[in-house]
Design a protein around this nucleic acid. Structure first.
Lengths: 341, 341
DNA sequence: CTGTTAGCGCTTTCAG
DNA sequence: CTGAAAGCGCTAACAG
């Protein structure tokens, strides 16, 4: 022990030890086909005694695919993706699969590298939060089941699990409108994907439904990876002093907005109400708590994994998109508008 | 396209397409051995044309091991582990390895299952935040390089990367003592591992160094997965009304302490100062900000992965433990003691 | 119910 | 510099 066995125990050795043939030993261990109970026991004992660990690469080579499932997320340090990954892992582990996790940092090229690696390892399936359609297309083209999560790339031939962004955003903004706000800003960091676009749609739909005119000047798009979001937000708020509420399109934006409001000393919600799309730990820790649109992220990961597992199990039928509903969580950061700041 | 090729392109086909033999094609693609430049180009073109994706399971079967590296963490939804995993992934991806992530939920049996799976897939190496020594021992016994992260199981034959818990805790508690606190509580959720134990040691060492007597009654051990931590903390604070400061052993505990303090309406730091070991997002978002011991978690993940990669590359020599230093971050949640609450 | 045979796709001696 | 041959460990026909 502790020396690191130079040579692994193979099925052949187990068979020998049990006084039978490799194929019988294989059947005994895998539980396929007929094996006498006595022999089965004997083989199992031999395997245990020798510390046999089956070689999945041999198995994978023989069969069609491995028990590996790929997951591509855009930023593991973002709690949103971490929770997503946790949900995926949970379902996968329960089904006896392993999760290979790739962080593409929002870069399509890295996602594509990941996809190629998944192909090479004969992954049973892949889950991804797409940043482009290339990765999905490559995978689908090669016959690997794919489920897109959170965003949809628009690629054909794959299932998807998303959250109803438009509905969630509309609920959030309607809440602000109901409170009497009329100059509601929306801050986002992308309209590249359906997430950002749909949330903007929801923001607009809420205004239309309430008969409140829209103003382009109230929408601030920071862009992905802004150099200095705080400065952008500061300039925005200074340019639009009659804003009484801000709707942040996701947790990253919400954090930047919150910090800028703190920095400039604008009391929330007195000077400015705030709502976030996506509800993280800190939003219920701060005082006042942040009103938020809670996304069932962990659940989304689980659902996506289940869907993928069904496809892996051979389920046929055309691609489906499951849409989960967010939940509006009112907290202290929203109230009727005071005087403009 | 989009139909899912029933049969993958093999090296044989690429060779045929390029008008050469499989072995030459292999050399051309892998870059091993001598191949005429002309043929090499031809093979590469053929591979690209056919959309060839090498089968790693065949490669793994032939060679000793795969390019898969296992990582076992205890709770992916905990930002600490998510950051750790992100750091690991970053280093691994840069080196052309893939990360297989297992969440053991603090359960040794699941970690062991993970370890067996890693063995079965001939993982090149494994990183783990141990919950017991079984997984590490199994892996080491089979000759798989292992690096333990954050905690050490005590198993022999593996490297480790940890953070100096004792030093960090001592700094935090010394800070409180320097402010004049004399009744400083410590709340933890385990003394099972060196993390909890060392932080308790640091708490005690700080007291000894300051000549302040210790009282067992000031230490609350919630235990792992407490049913109702809030209630336990409430009871504890009620039973020890002269407490003027709380040192929370990790982010989970800090969250529970913070929420209980909010709930009972005890102003921080006037009634009670608070320090957390581990610094999460919310701790700098709340008002006042939480004084914390920042751990370089992402960096720890990176370092652990580098260490493992070196072992995978064949580095010899006895097991080493890298200890990273935490950083004390004073914020608003600590001040001189007011009157006892 | 069990053993023999063949071969998954790749790499790697070993001759040429 | 290139091709033929063997085999990594396992499973799946197919006979027995």
């Amino acid at each position: 022990m502790g020396k690191g066995k130079r040579t692994r125990v193979t099925l052949r050795q187990v068979a020998q030890e049990a006084g039978t043939s490799p194929s019988t030993a294989s059947r005994a261990l895998a539980g396929n086909g007929y094996v006498a109970q006595a022999i089965k026991t004997r083989v199992e004992a031999a395997a245990a005694r020798l510390g046999y660990v089956p070689d999945v690469s041999a198995r994978t080579l023989k069969g069609r695919s491995s028990r590996l499932v790929g997951l591509v997320v855009s930023d593991l340090r973002n709690q949103f993706y971490a929770a997503l990954a946790a949900g995926v892992e949970q379902s996968l582990a329960a089904a006896g699969h392993q999760m290979v996790l790739v962080d593409d940092h929002g870069d399509d090229a890295r996602a594509l590298d990941g996809a190629r690696a998944f192909l090479a390892m004969r992954a049973a399936g892949v889950l991804l939060a797409p940043v482009g359609r290339q990765a999905t297309e490559l995978l689908v083209e090669h016959g690997t089941p794919v489920v897109e999560v959170d965003r949809r790339s628009g690629a054909r031939g794959c299932d998807a699990v998303t959250i109803d962004s438009e509905r969630g955003a509309q609920a959030a903004v309607t809440h602000l409108l109901d409170l009497g706000h009329r100059r509601i800003a929306m801050v986002l960091d992308e309209t590249v994907w359906d997430t950002g676009r749909d949330r903007l749609k929801g923001y607009r739909a809420a205004h239309r439904a309430a008969g409140v005119p829209l103003s382009r000047r109230l929408v601030l798009d920071l862009g992905l990876r802004p150099a200095d979001p705080g400065a952008d937000i500061a300039a925005f708020l200074a340019a639009e002093p009659d804003i009484t509420a801000v709707f942040a399109a996701n947790n990253v934006v919400a954090e930047a907005v919150w910090q800028e409001l703190q920095r400039r000393g604008s009391p929330v919600p007195k000077d400015c109400s705030v709502v976030s799309f996506d509800d993280l730990t800190w939003m219920r820790m701060v005082e006042p708590g942040l009103t938020a649109v809670r996304q069932p992220v962990y659940e989304m990961g689980r659902r996506a994994a289940e869907l993928l597992l069904a496809r892996i199990a051979g389920e046929q039928g055309r691609a489906r998109t499951h849409t989960l509903q967010p939940e509006f969580v009112p907290r202290g950061s929203t109230s009727a508008p005071g005087r403009p700041h």
